[in-house]
Amino acid sequence: MTLEAMTVSPRDAEKYEEKEFGFWLYLMSDAVIFALLFATYLVMVGNTAGGPTGKELFSLERAAAETLVLLLSSTTFGFAAVALSAGDRSKVLMWLAITVLLGACFIFLEIGEFCGMIQEGAGPERSGFLSAFFTLVGTHGLHVSVGLLWICVMIGQVFFKGLTAPVASRLMRLGLFWHFLDIIWVVIFSVVYLPGVL
């Protein structure tokens, strides 16, 4: 059944709008968390305590690859939303699964980057700069991981419950979350990686 053909009681429709707005407020609150982590990073970016700097540690290629998979995952999630509106369950499942794969790629790349740095002796305990870097980028990574778990739960719900109105409403909020994380990532590569390698 397509979204348009779905019968939703006015009360439920109101509830979904309330939830979307509430979730939007949560995202704004989360945006402030990231904003303050960015401010902290900028305050500490010069505090390398004699340790390695961004120029020595960051890899432009890896950052570009991370950006690419994350942007693609946002698009594939969008395709899932379109399939949802059309009421095509198997396509929703397919696009969600692809999104999970891309997101997992991102996490894999990021974990690789973190492990590499820690092995070089450039872990968060090395300097204030690295503490701020790991916290900022790690917080984003944590959000992506939670997002991945959430997508997996939603795949389960779509599979077992079908495209019901509550499931559709949850998928829409999940979409907000997923696209929001992309915006944070845009700021991360513009504030951390690109100026870092200069």
Binding site: E4, D12, E20, L71, G78, S85, A168
Partner: peptide, 23 residues
């Protein structure tokens, strides 16, 4: 959409424009 409280996305167009511009 006023009737269901869930936004309806008919086409993938915005996502395609978005990804191209973003890239």
């Amino acid at each position: 959409d006023a009737s269901s409280g869930i936004p309806i996305e008919r086409t993938a167009r915005p996502y395609l424009i978005g990804i191209v511009l973003a890239l």
